[in-house]
């Protein structure tokens, strides 16, 4: 294969767009970790179920993926609220290890329920075939829309967290939970809002993932580990940094795939994260030490 600038550009663009979807998945994980101190591996299970939901909606001719997504996002927001009231209500008080075991358990349930109902097969939605070309780089329309939506969600979330009072309150309780309680912020309610937002992000990520990649039940487990890896890179509770880290990982993956193979790219990613955990557990973008 020729490594012409346009091929490399193609890979980097596609990688960045894929990466921004990873980033959207990771942001939800990071948000709930910051505010409610919940390490929610099951987050990827929600993404997976949205993917299957959209698939069913499209296959049965009910709706276009984006329309299905428009329904899924508010629906997941509400579900997230409910989940934080019930399944996750007592999780923030558990030790890290117990949380990991608990949410991994939930992830297994979600992943293999999907396998039970939908079978282990690989699914994908046919693409529209529309593509855009500029400077030798050809991009599927779906990929562009996906990237735009992911980036849009990251910017919107960033604006919400830095501009609105509620967003600031969410950041405040992530920053100093006890301080937030003592000054009268209702951290329990804020945790619910954060979980709801995190679910809504999962819905968005699931919807756009369906339009651009193949998927299968085990994708749930893979995405969970990947989201964790990205969030570690971004510094765990730094939501926007998680998005940036997602984009980086996407580009890294694409480049590695181009130069070697997808699995070598993944090996390199995990080896890199392994080193990051050992050397800079606080993430790449921050100087503050971990607790």
């Amino acid at each position: 294969m020729e490594f012409s600038p346009s091929v490399i550009g193609q890979m980097l663009f596609t990688g960045a767009l894929m990466g921004s979807i990873y980033g959207a998945v990771a942001m939800g994980f990071s948000l709930i970790f910051g505010v409610a101190k919940i390490i929610n591996f099951a987050h990827a299970g929600v993404v997976l179920w949205v993917m299957y939901g959209v698939l069913v909606a499209v296959r049965s001719g009910v709706a276009h993926p984006y329309v299905a997504g428009l329904v899924a996002i508010p629906l997941c927001y509400v579900i997230g609220h409910g989940v934080q009231r019930t399944l996750m209500a007592r999780v923030s008080a558990m030790s890290d290890d117990m949380q990991i075991i608990y949410t991994f358990g939930l992830l297994l349930v979600l992943t293999y329920m999907a396998q039970f109902f939908f079978g282990p097969d690989v699914h994908f939605l046919p693409s529209s075939g529309l593509a855009v070309e500029f400077g030798g780089v050809v991009l599927q329309v779906e990929t562009i829309i996906a990237g735009a939506l992911a980036l849009g969600s990251a910017l919107a979330l960033h604006a919400f967290l830095s501009r609105t009072w509620l967003g600031k309150a969410i950041r405040a309780s992530a920053d100093n939970r006890r301080g937030a309680t003592l000054m009268g912020l209702d951290v329990v309610r804020l945790s619910r809002v954060a979980m709801a937002l995190s679910f809504a992000l999962a819905a968005l990520a699931g919807t756009i993932l369906v339009t651009v990649t193949t998927f299968y039940p085990l994708r749930g487990l893979e995405l969970a580990v990947l989201a964790f890896v990205i969030v570690v890179l971004g510094g765990m509770d730094n939501v926007f940094a998680s998005f940036v880290a997602g984009v980086l990982i996407g580009m890294f993956e694409a480049l590695g795939t181009l130069l070697f193979s997808p699995s070598i790219a993944h090996m390199a990613i995990y080896a890199m994260i392994f080193a990051v955990l050992l050397v800079r557990p606080q993430g790449l973008f921050r100087r503050r030490a971990t607790k």
Binding site: V225, F228, S263, I264, M267, Y270, L277
Partner: peptide, 28 residues
Amino acid sequence: AFRSGLRGIYFSGLTLVLAEALRFAAIN
């Protein structure tokens, strides 16, 4: 890991990532 005082999610995450890295190494 013990030297750098990893605990909780950072420690468990490290072990998780180690296995994944080796899995991909075997695949490669």
